[in-house]
Amino acid sequence: MSACLRLTDDNFLEEVLDAEVPVLVDFWGSWCPPCKMMEPVVDALAETFAGVLKVGKLNVDRNPATRSQFEVSAAPTFILFQDGEVSMRAIGARSHKQLVELINRALGRREAAPQRVVAVHTASQASGRTQLEVSTI
């Protein structure tokens, strides 16, 4: 289950602009392949930064007012809001590591990127059969 907030034109003020903690917003569209591929990364960010910031997703087609207010014309667009102001903005797909770095920089945090457990696929050489291993990056 996603730990992300479902943001809308109706709750954006309360959940994002008036929020007491920083909020990362993923502006996404169902027609956008990079947005779809970002879903697990964005979900992981919510866990990575639990207690530090909130992560929310806003569908750009369903929420035209917010989309227009922040002039989002490409998806995915990631905007970090702090005290109702834009403190970081990135367009296009990013790896988990890249987004962590961008967010940490915007927040003025110096600590190393938190670790994240990911599934890594390896194939046995002889048969090419795929096995699932878990490792940490």
């Binding site: 750009v60 035209p64 989309r67 227009s68 014309s73 998806a75």
Partner: peptide, 13 residues
């Protein structure tokens, strides 16, 4: 509206 011209999405707003 999205990913197209600015004019269109302002109109939507």
């Amino acid at each position: 509206a999205c990913g197209q011209s600015t004019k269109q999405f302002v109109k939507a707003a």
